[in-house]
């Protein structure tokens, strides 16, 4: 049996208490909600925190509040299954629903939280291995070693942002609330991420993810398309998140984000711009896909070959936009 390393455990009942413990323990401490990302990592000795702070008892970190008209507040410790079952999410933020529904397996979604997925450790198949395996490659830059084995010349770790919710939250323009002993700050979801496989979050180690706010859903349509080998268990090797706001038939605003092709979600700015002011037709979609796919720069550290993954970006952007569809097309895409 693979066992967890030893640690001290705290289960505070309030956010303030949690922030205080975190501050007090310093970088030796980590917070844990569902544990589906952290515990496997700990069993493989990627992280061996001296102290774990469980967030399960903090009611203020759970739940979905608000309305499509005002926007939603989602507690980061909300279990993924509960979000899947939320009509607010499913009907008004279908792209988010699809992203959540595609995470791992139904059983894992009964345990994992959205905050956990947002903060998901970057992944790399030189990193996500047992301690003994990693010792055989003399470890890697991300943990216990110096070299990035994906690209030994690289001075930055190339581990992949593999969160399904990250690209869609970026596309929705979600805001993230971070709380620490020092106070609270709110940032754009896209500013949470950094293109560095090691230091992949701008969240400080003393900060706790305390809330996710989604803007009003009115007139936004959304979708999320995910590429992976199997329809369960597998992390994305590509995720395409699309949010489009229409003014009549015309695209008023478009947001297109790529997941799992870099160390952070990637915004396809040119493709977005190409859609604005036009109808969503086969032609405009094709153009957006053409503009988006050079941004995907997969490296050889996930399942599938990187060339094929890059090629698929074009196809999946097209699919995601087709799925969003123009207003009035088959519903379930939002408002």
């Amino acid at each position: 049996m693979m066992r967890l390393p030893r640690f001290r455990y705290h289960a505070p009942a309030t956010l303030g208490e949690a922030a205080a413990i975190l501050q007090g323990e310093g970088s030796q401490a980590m917070v844990v909600a569902g544990g589906t990302d952290l515990y496997p990592n700990m069993k493989r000795r990627h992280q061996t925190p001296k102290t774990l702070i469980g967030l399960r008892k903090i009611d203020a970190l759970r739940g979905v509040k608000g309305s499509p008209a005002r926007g939603l507040w989602i507690g980061p410790a909300t279990i993924l299954t509960d979000l899947e079952e939320s009509a607010l999410v499913r009907e008004h933020y279908p792209g988010l629903y699809e992203a959540i529904h595609s995470i791992s397996t139904p059983i894992l979604r009964n345990m994992g939280t959205i905050g956990g997925n947002i903060c998901l450790d970057t992944r790399c198949n030189y990193y996500n291995q047992n301690y003994e395996w990693r010792r055989a490659i003399n470890f890697c830059m991300k943990c216990d070693g110096d070299t990035c084995w994906v690209a030994p010349g690289s001075d930055v770790c190339l581990a992949v942002s593999s969160s399904d919710t990250a690209p869609i939250l970026c596309a929705f323009g979600a805001r993230i609330q971070l709380v620490s002993k020092k106070g609270t700050r709110t940032i754009e979801a896209k500013d949470l991420y950094r293109r560095d496989g090691i230091d992949y979050l701008t969240k400080r180690s003393d900060e706790i993810l305390a809330g996710i706010t989604l803007p009003p859903a009115a007139r936004w349509r959304s979708s999320y398309r995910k590429l992976r080998r199997r329809e369960a268990f597998d992390f994305p090797v590509l995720g395409v998140a699309a949010c489009v706001r229409f003014d009549g038939e015309i695209v008023a605003e478009a947001r297109l984000w790529l997941g799992a092709v870099s160390m952070a979600p990637v915004e396809a700015a040119e493709a977005q711009a190409a859609l604005v002011g036009r109808r969503l037709t086969e032609e405009t979609i094709e153009e957006a896909a053409r503009l988006a796919y050079p941004l995907a720069k997969p490296v050889d550290n996930t399942d599938f070959g990187l060339r094929w993954r890059k090629e698929m970006t074009r196809h999946f952007v097209r699919e995601a936009l087709l799925e969003v569809g123009p207003p009035g097309s088959p519903s379930g895409r939002g408002n």
Binding site: N125, Y126, N128, Q129, N130, W133, A136, I137, W149, R229, R230, E231, A232, F233, D234, F235, D303
Partner: peptide, 21 residues
């Protein structure tokens, strides 16, 4: 080229079809 390590020694990376496939 990386010391002959197994490429995917886990149930996540070694792809065994699920109910969905």
């Amino acid at each position: 080229n990386r010391g002959g390590v197994h490429r995917q020694p886990s149930l996540l990376e070694y792809k065994s079809p699920t109910t969905m496939e």
